[in-house]
């Protein structure tokens, strides 16, 4: 993060090389008056997707826009205003998780029944597979191009136990370090490993069930 030189050109005089303008009004994207129209819905969806709580998501969108206005000078024109706003929103979400971690009763054996339903069902009492896995990931490059498969991935992510989902999102979507995730969620490293293992195992199971081409092979 390099600071913008104080005597640089004002926003309005900068050459607009990209479509970072409000197409409706022609106002520069940095004008906060248009933010709600331009980015409100996306920010809300992002927050709602993470927290699953409408009121909370709305509050965080509001907080995001207000802090963005206050720190407008730290916005760098080489990212889009939306990316910048989402960055602020992400920090708000993480702050929220941090604040609520105690109230959230973070038992590692939280009552989601996941251990019984997925992890234990897959292995017998000696820890050996109970079933034979089909070889559906033989062509990763090809599979990654399937929009349908990626859509299923997203659905499956939604269906994970909440704690595991948060840990997985922080790890893989927010690229947080393990120590930092433990800090945010208020858990130990070994708890984090259990949560991430649950998330991955659950995702695999869910994707396998939902993706029909798997059965064709």
């Amino acid at each position: 993060m390099t600071a913008r030189p104080g005597n640089g050109p004002p926003f309005a005089q900068r050459p607009m090389t990209t479509k970072r303008e409000n197409s409706k009004t022609g106002v520069a994207a940095e004008d906060p008056a248009g933010w709600l129209d331009d980015h409100g819905a996306i920010l809300f969806q992002f927050a709602f997707g993470r927290l699953k709580n409408r009121e909370l998501a709305e509050d965080l969108v509001q907080e995001t826009m207000l802090s963005a206005v206050r720190s407008l000078s730290s916005f760098r024109a080489d990212s889009s205003i939306r990316t910048w706003l989402i960055g602020i929103l992400k920090n708000k979400i993480i702050d929220h998780l941090r604040q609520t971690r105690r109230a959230a009763a973070l038992g590692i054996a939280d009552a989601d029944g996941f251990e019984e339903t997925v992890l234990q069902r897959d292995f017998n009492r000696y820890g050996i597979w109970n079933r034979f896995l089909s070889n559906w990931a033989a062509n990763p490059e090809e599979l990654l191009e399937h929009d349908q498969l990626l859509a299923i991935f997203k659905e499956c992510l939604e269906g994970l136990p909440e704690k595991a989902r948060q840990a997985y999102l922080l790890k893989n979507f927010d690229a947080q370090e393990s120590d930092e995730i433990c800090n945010i969620l208020g858990i130990t490293t070994s708890h984090l490993w259990v949560l991430l293992h649950r998330a991955r195992h659950g995702l695999r199971d869910c994707i396998e069930k939902r993706w029909s081409p798997i059965e064709d092979e």
């Binding site: 990931a137 990654l144 893989n172």
Partner: peptide, 18 residues
């Protein structure tokens, strides 16, 4: 081995979706 390949694919899906 199959399980591993699937898990690694899912990690890449996450990267792509993210």
């Amino acid at each position: 081995r199959r399980y591993r390949r699937q898990i690694l694919l899912i990690e890449r899906m996450a990267q792509k979706v993210a």
